[in-house]
């Protein structure tokens, strides 16, 4: 079952990297989102997955032997939320840049230092 995840991670990374190399900033943001998903799934997978046994302590007060590892999950959970914050910030940042400079071609945005002067 991991094989599917491995392929998914590869595809997500590839599309994320491809998008982040684009010149249009909407695409770059999509690239960021994909890279976030890819990284989360990577941590999730290398932390070993288990099927149908979440990391909860049973009524008897024990954790099942083959339960999921809670630590990667905790890491990913905060990463998801932080990712949202970063996305929102990136969207607003690019939007502002677009409004100020009138272009969303990142190749044209490489002379910001001069613009400020």
């Amino acid at each position: 079952m991991e094989v599917i995840l491995v392929i998914v991670i590869g595809v997500l990374y590839a599309s994320g990297l491809y998008m982040i190399l684009r010149r249009s900033f909407v695409k770059v943001i999509i690239g960021l989102i994909f890279l976030g998903h890819a990284a989360n799934l990577l941590i999730f997978t290398v932390g070993r997955i288990s099927k149908g046994i979440p990391a909860f302590i049973s009524i008897e007060g024990t954790l099942a032997e083959n339960a999921a590892d809670p630590l990667p999950q905790a890491l990913i959970l905060t990463a998801i939320v932080i990712g949202f914050g970063v996305q929102a910030f990136a969207i607003v940042l690019f939007k502002r840049a677009y409004q100020t400079t009138g272009t969303d071609d990142l190749d044209e945005l490489n002379t910001t230092d001069e613009l400020i002067q």
């Binding site: 491995v6 392929i7 991670i9 590869g10 595809v11 997500l12 990374y13 590839a14 599309s15 994320g16 990297l17 491809y18 190399l21 890819a38 990577l42």
Partner: peptide, 10 residues
């Protein structure tokens, strides 16, 4: 580039 990157991560 992206393809190689994805492959590497996989």
């Amino acid at each position: 580039l992206a393809g190689l990157g994805g492959l590497l991560m996989s």
